[in-house]
């Protein structure tokens, strides 16, 4: 018995125009082509899905007609600096048919190698991501400004004699007279150096005892401010430990309690 096996025919022909159109229209990103006048020459179905504006109403229109007015300057600037070998990414807001805004990310490049125009672009609706980011940012911003407005100094320090700071809140300036940036970036300015020499030993001991017992500390000591004034502060805090109980740092808050 002989098994007749026909070699499968390798189809090498290019996809037809209708296949390509079908492919483009099935995508969930917008694909478009812009001419030298920055008018929309070609655009796929996804545009209508995102913006609610029909393809017929879009083709031949300038792209800026659909952009939020506040985003036009950055768009114009991008196009002016556009070069034919570059691939650009830009975020902007589109105004949909209902007047709602859609946040979009656009990737833009030349169609041909040595010619700037026409430009091809893909456009992706990133509205949900932007909204999430806004919510995240709002809660971070709210917490940050709360911390920075407190009339005390929140800190996270390393457990060493100069109490090198990893983080201090803006209230630092209120308490010590130094800005948070100075205290974080300049090694010669440290909390350890500000503590009155006679109190430094006591402070170190009390904190070490609390760390040993994994309890909190609450100590009062004298602090010399940036302008030379001496004040009395209250420092409440606790250690920061790893799972195994290793001391990673000290966190707390310092308030001024007397001149």
């Amino acid at each position: 018995m002989t098994l007749l096996k026909w070699p499968t025919k390798i189809v090498n022909s290019a996809p037809t125009a209708s296949q390509l159109t079908q492919l483009l229209n099935s995508l969930s990103d917008v694909v478009m082509m812009l001419d030298e006048q920055h008018q929309i020459k070609m655009i796929n179905q996804c545009w209508q899905d995102i913006t609610g504006i029909s393809i017929e109403q879009t083709q031949g229109k300038a792209f800026t007609d659909f952009l939020h007015p506040e985003d036009i300057p950055s768009w114009v600037q991008l196009l002016q600096n556009m070069r034919c070998d570059a691939k650009e990414v830009i975020w902007f807001r589109l105004i949909s048919a209902s007047g709602e805004l859609r946040w979009c990310e656009m990737r833009l490049q030349s169609v041909e190698k040595n010619k700037l125009y026409p430009l091809s672009a893909t456009l992706c609706d990133i509205t949900p991501q932007v909204r999430n980011e806004q919510v995240r940012h709002a809660s971070y911003r709210s917490l940050q400004s709360l911390v920075d407005r407190l009339p005390g100094m929140l800190y996270r320090a390393r457990n060493n004699i100069s109490w090198s700071m990893e983080y201090v809140s803006e209230g630092c300036e209120h308490v010590t007279g130094y800005t948070a940036q100075t205290l974080l970036n300049q090694p010669q300015v440290s909390l350890g150096a500000m503590i009155h020499a006679a109190d430094a030993g006591y402070v170190w001991e009390q904190v070490q005892i609390a760390l040993e017992n994994q309890s909190t500390f609450s100590i009062q000591y004298r602090l010399t401010q940036a302008n030379g004034n001496e004040i009395v502060v209250l420092d409440k805090g606790r250690g920061l430990y790893s799972e195994s109980g290793m001391v990673l740092g000290v966190e707390g808050i310092i308030f001024q309690i007397a001149e």
Binding site: H68, P69, I95, L101, A138, S139, R141, S142
Partner: peptide, 16 residues
């Protein structure tokens, strides 16, 4: 006002 709260403010200004 954004700085004073955790509210998400969206500003949509289309005026010239």
């Amino acid at each position: 006002f954004e700085q004073q709260s955790a509210i998400v403010f969206e500003l949509d200004n289309r005026l010239p």
